[in-house]
Write a protein that binds this DNA or RNA. Structure first.
Length: 110
DNA sequence: GCCCTGACGGGAT
DNA sequence: TATCCCGCCAGGG
């Protein structure tokens, strides 16, 4: 049941628990599209149009940098949300990214 | 229906 | 180790 590539990405991102962050590549691989990290970011941009809450702010690039903060109402919203969940962010970059990194996705059976 | 862009990632230099 | 270039897939003009 192909609900759409984006939907699959949203479901994966929604699996990320608060206080934890993941990378686009990890999500892409989780949905069965390793390398399509760009698609993940593109989907996140549309995440606000998706019903339900998609923690797009918990998805950063592999450097831990908040590259998508511009997609939020305010450029600081993404950072504020992360800090609010216990994720330390400094200069648009997740501190201790290696510690808060989360990739225990529930792999989809296809 | 073609071309370009886009919240990235990895390999090569 | 840092920087550059190419490739992923889908959407929009």
């Amino acid at each position: 049941m192909d609900q759409g590539f984006f939907t699959r990405v949203y479901e994966a991102v929604k699996q990320v628990p608060p206080g934890r962050v993941t990378s686009y590549g990890a999500v892409a691989a989780a949905v069965g599209a390793p390398g399509a990290s760009r698609m993940v970011g593109w989907a996140m941009n549309k995440a606000f149009s998706y019903p339900g809450f998609v923690p797009a702010h918990r998805v950063v690039n592999r450097n831990g940098m908040l590259t998508g903060k511009h997609a939020f109402p305010n450029a600081d919203t993404m950072q504020e949300l992360l800090e609010s969940e216990g994720v330390d962010v400094a200069d648009d970059v997740v501190v201790n990214f290696n510690k808060v990194f989360w990739d225990d996705f529930n792999v989809f059976p296809e």
